[in-house]
């Protein structure tokens, strides 16, 4: 805003200045809008999201979802196995003929997620102390740790899974390793941020006592950050369960392989049977973990 000259009306000057700013803002906003529309049109074109394809595709979506829904016959719903040891079509038993097989795979999926979360948490605790700028033993260690964590969380689990399936063979081990690495990257970054917000006073206190770096972290920092770490690790566990349900798509164990198989080769009620189990598992674990996290935060808030 130019300085007010004698003889000028300050109100008019202010209004003029305001109008000027608004004009500028309007132009930038119009430009952004134009960019947005252009981007939208471009992405519609590139992803071939054309009306004719949509018109052909949408009915098929409904057709497909219609075909994978279970068809119940209400009188047979709770029917048990018949003389030949089969469930009659239209019963829940028929829908979930492979229930125990699915359940075993879901169990494996959950164990994979637990193992991966435990290892990833342990690794990222150590890495987060190295990566935090205020705690790192040397600046280059912090930089190296940060780059490493960025790499780990930048590559999706399923890509790591692809690589580990090649390296250690088909099976849950590849999935666990993949999820561990990705989760270490994600948790390590979050933990490092928590560390950087921790008070340095206790750390100074322990330095003055003659403590080693590890002792300073263990006694000076860990007690401060542990509640946050736990909460983040629980939250990551929820994500890891989802991840371990899909790494099987590339052969890395869990329910994923079955999911892939069922969806790829059948379009009947088996698809919804597996999907429903996965959704129930994931939702139940979300719920439990959320409870635990709230209990944790609540306990903290009371203190």
């Amino acid at each position: 805003m130019p300085p007010i000259q004698p003889g000028q009306d300050p109100v008019a000057l202010f209004e003029a200045h305001r109008a000027e700013i608004r004009r500028q803002k309007l132009w930038i906003n119009l430009l952004l809008l134009g960019g947005f529309v252009a981007m939208l049109l471009w992405s519609i074109d590139v992803s071939r999201f054309w009306p004719d394809r949509l018109a052909a595709g949408v009915p098929r979506i409904f057709e497909y979802f219609g075909s994978v829904l279970p068809s119940f016959q209400w009188d047979l719903l709770f029917e048990t196995r018949n003389a030949e040891g089969r469930f009659p079509p239209g019963s829940i038993g028929f829908w979930y003929n492979d229930f125990w097989k699915y359940l075993a795979l879901i169990w494996e999926t959950i164990l994979m997620a637990i193992t991966a979360t435990l290892i990833a948490t342990a690794l990222s605790v150590v890495l987060s102390f190295l990566a935090a700028r205020n705690l790192t033993p040397a600046p280059w260690v912090s930089t190296a740790a940060r780059r490493f964590l960025e790499f780990c969380r930048g590559v999706p689990e399923i890509l790591f899974a692809l690589i580990f399936v090649f390296a250690v063979g088909i099976g849950p081990l590849a999935g666990i390793l993949a999820i561990t690495i990705h989760a270490t990257g994600a948790l390590g970054k979050l933990f490092a941020e928590v560390n950087e917000n921790a008070s340095m006073k206790p750390v100074d206190g322990l330095t003055a006592v003659g403590g080693t770096w590890a002792q300073r972290m263990r006694y000076g920092v860990l007690p401060q950050v542990l509640p946050n770490f736990t909460s983040y690790a629980l939250w990551r566990f929820e994500i890891n369960v989802r991840a371990s349900a899909v790494v099987g798509f590339v052969g890395a164990g869990g329910i994923g392989a079955e999911l892939n198989h069922v969806i790829s080769f059948y379009s009947d009620d088996r698809v919804t049977a597996v999907l429903l189990l996965v959704v129930l598992t994931v939702t139940a674990i979300d719920l439990m973990s959320e409870r635990a996290r709230h209990a944790l935060i609540g306990k903290e808030a009371l203190k």
Binding site: P202, D204, V209, G210, G220, Q224, L226
Partner: peptide, 21 residues
């Protein structure tokens, strides 16, 4: 160095204790 620090203890204005322990 750590041994020397152990030999000369320090008390701080803000106490510098670990509050959660």
């Amino acid at each position: 160095l750590r041994q020397w620090r152990n030999e000369c203890a320090m008390v701080f204005q803000q106490f510098n204790l670990v509050g959660r322990l």
